[in-house]
Nucleic acid binder design. Structure first.
Length: 266
DNA sequence: ATGGTGGCTGCGCCA
């Protein structure tokens, strides 16, 4: 099963790019974040034409929004928490039909957290930490994930080599110790295995996002690994390959995030 | 130290 995660930064604007993604990565399941579209305006026809006959979407006007597009049948996991009681369309939990039984799949868009890494001074940072706290508590209550995959734009680059300069990024939202520790607690609670670092050793730089604000993003290469794929321990041995589709950052009218693929041999 | 770009939406918000 080939699972792709991509922060598309407007699904209506960038729906045409999905055909490039499909050509390059041939996903069975495609998880999107920041669709920025109410459900009634989701480009179903374009997505259907690419072979994704099964779709679950959770969007809103202007901000946020997640979607799971699939070649295999999906079932919405009902009754999952409404994080921070905000109805802000940052999570979809689904079951994907697969050989040997369904796989539980979670698609997250974690709050970015604003600019100031201080929960008193910056309510967005408080929201980010509260969001992760709630997920961690929920995860701890359920115990270790089984036959499960978690993907998304988690807006945290946890490792030293998930950012261009660990030293210069320690005070920058996305790489502060408090965020990294919060993410580690979430990961421990579910006994999640980091699928990208399964393939790429921690001493090697690995980025999935480059700011729009650089004159030359590729030359500067001040990237961050904000997009993640985690798998439950029972699936760790079934990991077959990964791709970080860096060329997507050069596509015309590109997102600032690139698609990430993980292939599982179920 | 600052501002740099981009996508909403409707001139400010969020990333």
């Amino acid at each position: 099963m080939r699972i792709v995660t991509w922060n598309i930064n407007s699904v209506r604007l960038r729906a045409p790019l999905l055909s490039h993604l499909v050509d390059a990565l041939e996903p069975d399941v495609l998880c999107l974040q920041e669709t920025k579209s109410p459900d009634e305006h989701f480009p179903h026809e374009a997505v259907e034409a690419l072979g994704f006959g099964h779709r679950l979407i959770r969007g809103m006007k202007g901000y946020n929004g997640v979607a799971v597009l699939s070649r295999r049948p999906l079932r919405l996991r009902e009754g999952e928490p409404n994080w921070c009681s905000r109805d802000d369309c940052r999570h979809l939990g689904v079951d994907v039909e697969a050989e040997g039984g369904a796989v539980e799949l979670h698609n997250f868009y974690v709050p970015a957290g604003g600019d100031v890494p201080d929960r008193e001074a910056n309510p967005k940072f408080a929201h980010k930490l509260d969001f992760i706290r709630e997920i961690t508590d929920w995860t701890a209550g359920r115990g270790a994930a089984k036959r499960a995959v978690l993907v998304g734009d988690l807006n945290i680059a946890p490792l030293e080599h998930d950012v261009w300069s660990h030293r210069q990024m320690l005070g920058v939202v996305s790489h502060t110790p408090v965020e990294v520790e919060a993410m580690a607690g979430w990961q421990r609670a579910g006994e999640w295995h980091d699928a990208l670092r399964h393939f790429v050793p921690p001493e090697e730089k690995l980025y999935t996002w480059w700011s729009y604000r650089a004159r030359d993003w590729e030359a500067a290469n001040r990237g961050r690994r904000l997009d993640h794929v985690w798998v439950s321990q029972d699936l760790a041995g079934k990991l077959r390959s990964h791709t970080v589709l860096k060329p997507a950052r050069s596509w015309a009218q590109c997102s600032d995030h690139v698609p990430v693929l993980v292939e599982l041999d179920l």
